[in-house]
Design a protein around this nucleic acid. Structure first.
Lengths: 143, 143
DNA sequence: TATCATTGCATAGCATGCTATTCAACTGTT
DNA sequence: AACAGTTGAATAGCATGCTATGCAATGATA
């Protein structure tokens, strides 16, 4: 029996995630944001002054990935780093006024992209869909 | 109302796709394959001798992305290019014996990864899940 | 206290994916 | 045949993500 990519959850997940990322990128590019920067901002809008390690935990990416994203965010004037008073190894990451001001337009762009993706699903189906994704994530994380 | 990433389809899709890719990578690394190479092989196992343009259409990636993947596949001895008899611009992409031999173990690895991801979903739920992903993909492609 | 392990972060190197650009080969039209 | 437009592919440049290393600061322990 042949392996059919259209019946493969992994293939579909990859394709879907690329479309999400591309769509979000189109919408937030005018704001001067890239998708991974937006993800980091989500965590920082919720709680400013996190350390790199805490961002890594909240976004489930590798430390090296976050380090590079933070370099680009600092370059783009979205964050500044302050030395941590209690631990000379770590820094706390703080939003600039520019980044704070982007909260509403950026989250609105993300909501708009989610809506575009789920437009064909009913309200009930959307809840089921999100739940199934969470369950797949949990299975892959534990396994 | 705050934007909550755990309720965002895009955020979950990104996370899920990364876990799929990482899991597949672990499983096919011993075969000397990378995830994007596996995706290209899926199309070529099904139909050998495709052109780069045809691969682009089947896998829904940009031409430049496929060009780079093919460079790595040629480097790794998975494909060879033959000049197209009817069009001097294009080449047909052919599998090597090495790539042909990888079909069974590689597709088995992918099936295994899909199973690990969906282990918590019933057979009916899996069908619903795949269908919802296809619908989200269709919505984002058309919109 | 001297040593060893752990932890937080930076860096190198690579794969994947994108946009933009370039170039050569093909097509169609005049 | 000559020109313009189209198409197939390569390349440059960048973002995101990963693994593997290295290093300095911290902690724990003999």
């Amino acid at each position: 029996m042949a392996f059919q990519k259209e019946r493969s959850a992994g293939f579909l997940a990859n394709h879907m995630a690329r479309l999400f990322a591309n769509g979000l990128q189109q919408r937030i590019r005018p704001l001067g944001l890239a998708p991974a920067q937006f993800m980091a901002l989500l965590a920082l809008w919720d709680e400013d002054g996190l350390t790199q390690r805490e961002l890594v935990q909240r976004l489930s990416v590798e430390q090296a990935t976050m380090a590079n994203t933070l370099i680009r965010m600092e370059r783009d004037g979205l964050i500044e780093r302050r030395s941590h008073p209690e631990d000379g190894r770590s820094q706390s990451i703080h939003l600039t006024a520019k980044a704070i001001a982007l909260r509403e337009p950026a989250t609105q762009a993300a909501r708009s992209q989610n809506e575009a993706a789920l437009v064909d699903l009913s309200e009930d189906e959307r809840l089921v869909f999100l739940d199934m994704m969470r369950r797949a994530i949990a299975s892959m994380q534990s396994g």
